[in-house]
Write a protein that binds this DNA or RNA. Structure first.
Lengths: 121, 121
DNA sequence: TATGGTACAAACAAATTTGTAAGTAATGAC
DNA sequence: GTCATTACTTACAAATTTGTTTGTACCATA
């Protein structure tokens, strides 16, 4: 999509990084928003506007951009209902559901170590 | 460090995101390099130059930058030996070690779903 | 006829992240 | 006295990510 120099180190590093299973996975949920969106979606369906309410300051553009990317990666399923006003629902795909236990563990790490850090400050 | 508008949406979102346990953790290992560096470090000590060899195209600047950030977050311990030429060793801290099993699972996800994707293309 | 709600899209702008190239300090080997 | 070695640092530049603002299509309802 975005033109880029073929053999820039930037691109070589990117290739190197998506060849690795670990970073392949990490990239799918990287960036500021993806991981929280997936987590909020959890086991339920949410409409665009409901998702937006979950993140008080996200811009609509960001939200659509992230949802599109997640859809592209087949982590999110988008269902459009031909109604007026429009209704669109988002839900996790089976492969995204597999991330949920991992998110739990990350969350536990976060909780624990955020506490430790606060107690020292 | 870098000045930033106090109440820009960027900053508000950042706050929102580090308040959450999940994204607090995710941020510690986010970006292009941190997660692979931690993973490579695993249970052993590595020198700067040894680490560099693991990533064929990383720039020295990037490597130091990431290592400094990891040190700051107390995920990596840095030991300097007063020799010439200098020797510096890096190793994971106990709280970083707790990430390793999570990396395993992410890696397993990556392996599995990369395969699925390839078989469809 | 005017208004309102939903889920976006497009053009632009700011901020951050990542990479490039060159240089430094100390010392011992040649 | 010059060179090689190691682990950086500095100044700069490119690329990507994130945010702002404005606008649109749809039709039901007032």
């Amino acid at each position: 999509m975005t033109a880029r120099k073929e053999n820039s180190t930037y691109t070589l590093n990117e290739k190197f990084i998506t060849d690795c299973d670990l970073t392949y996975a990490a990239n799918k949920i990287g960036g500021r928003w993806k991981i929280v969106i997936l987590d909020k979606l959890g086991n339920r369906k949410l409409r665009f506007s409901e998702l937006k309410k979950e993140f008080p300051y996200i811009s609509e553009r960001m939200l659509t951009l992230q949802l599109r990317a997640l859809e592209q990666d087949e982590l999110v399923k988008r269902t459009v209902y031909a109604e007026v006003p429009p209704r669109v629902e988002y839900e996790l795909t089976p492969i995204a559901l597999e991330f949920l236990p991992i998110f739990c563990q990350l969350s536990a790490w976060g909780k624990k170590n955020k506490m430790l850090k606060n107690n020292r400050s």
